[in-house]
Design a protein around this nucleic acid. Sequence first.
DNA 1: TTTTATCACTTGTATTTACAAGTTAATTTT
DNA 2: AAAATTAACTTGTAAATACAAGTGATAAAA
Lengths: 238, 238
Amino acid sequence: MVGAKKMPQYKKLYEILRKHITSGLYPEGSLLPSENELCALHGLTRPTVRHALDQLVKDSYIIKQQGKGSIVSKLPKDIGILSIHGSTSAIGKEHLKTLIIEKPAIKAWDTPFMFELTDIERESGCICFERLRLVNEIPVFYDITHIPNINMPRFASRNFKNKSLFEILRTGYQIEIIGGEQRLKAIPADKRISKHLQVKEGHPILHVERKMKTNRQGFYIYSTLYFNSENHSVCGTF
Amino acid sequence: MVGAKKMPQYKKLYEILRKHITSGLYPEGSLLPSENELCALHGLTRPTVRHALDQLVKDSYIIKQQGKGSIVSKLPKDIGILSIHGSTSAIGKEHLKTLIIEKPAIKAWDTPFMFELTDIERESGCICFERLRLVNEIPVFYDITHIPNINMPRFASRNFKNKSLFEILRTGYQIEIIGGEQRLKAIPADKRISKHLQVKEGHPILHVERKMKTNRQGFYIYSTLYFNSENHSVCGTF
DNA sequence: TTTTATCACTTGTATTTACAAGTTAATTTT
DNA sequence: AAAATTAACTTGTAAATACAAGTGATAAAA
């Protein structure tokens, strides 16, 4: 294991409990052992145990309630990956289809780009691709993704058909999204958008520009979204 | 008395430092007094001071660096999700104005309401008010807030003119927003919206429905937003 | 039976003490 | 003068202790 030796006690306990929660040992809604029990179990003092629990609260794995205990809350937030919520019913995975409009290709960044770029990003160029997502065969959002072409071997030739972008990044490149920023607007559909989303020109479209921070230092992923929110909403937690 | 008396010490210090930072006493990039200095200044012990600083870190008012100190970072987010970003320049507080369209009043919940309500919420009724926010005298967003009328003494008679809602909730009722969910849509402006936001009917409007979770168990704050995103964007981090 | 009170248990706040580890600047040595 | 060392800071981790405050179940009283 990589450097688990000098990890502080509270962090060790945090990792243990985190693993127990995500693995389902403590199901959602159940109570964690009390602070005093955790002290006895792991040979720690209460301030240390509380420090570990504070981290779990911060990452919203648990909610604490005075007089009651530490309640396990729903498993991790989907990192702002905007989920879709239909106005009629929940959308199962089986109804969601992805169409590749433009295959991943290496090109120069647009100038100006929606976010400010570093010199390194600018020089490296980007991998760009466009996708259309359909729910029940109806196009719902149109997605343009820009990834800096820095240490991304064979990315452009990968098959995106059935795997999520984030799954490929995580499993193929050990890249995980750890946060980001986004800008939202409502805009009228232009010719290109109206064609892809099959709406009239001028129809209100939800426009999202996102800059996603990753666990790789200085490596960001950019994405532009055009969303037909007539029958669906974009949902998110914060 | 609206409970400023039994506020814990660490929270008092948090509020003091927070005020000092937002008021510009400690400018961005500068160092806060060291933990030991804060102990001496306020007659507290280091764990208590550290607890206060932890809160400031959590809310990203400061960044701590071992061996150096607590560095004041950029003034943040009102509540993480809702800052406005102009397409031309940053928006200073001096250019932001709030207009009360409907004063806080106790009434029954709309049926159906945008989010599902518990029986307790439904029975208690709600405090509802509507505000219009202007940037440089131009209306930018229209805001309808619903707060359950549960243990909120004298809330309806408070003056909202110059204080942020969240500031009143935090200082007057010890209520803090700890998260939430939201749904976003792009919709055409109807008659009412177009009147308030001074746009043509049918103009694309960003519509946000939010359910905000608080530190008070089972207590949620609901808000509906209509945003004219022609010249501004809604920005958020995740 | 219903209400009230108590008790055991939970987390919340706060003090005190100690040492580890990172940063910076002054001092000493080369 | 330049490099290395030291000293004096800073925050980080961790222990032991105490009491306050909220919760829930049990026991006592009405």
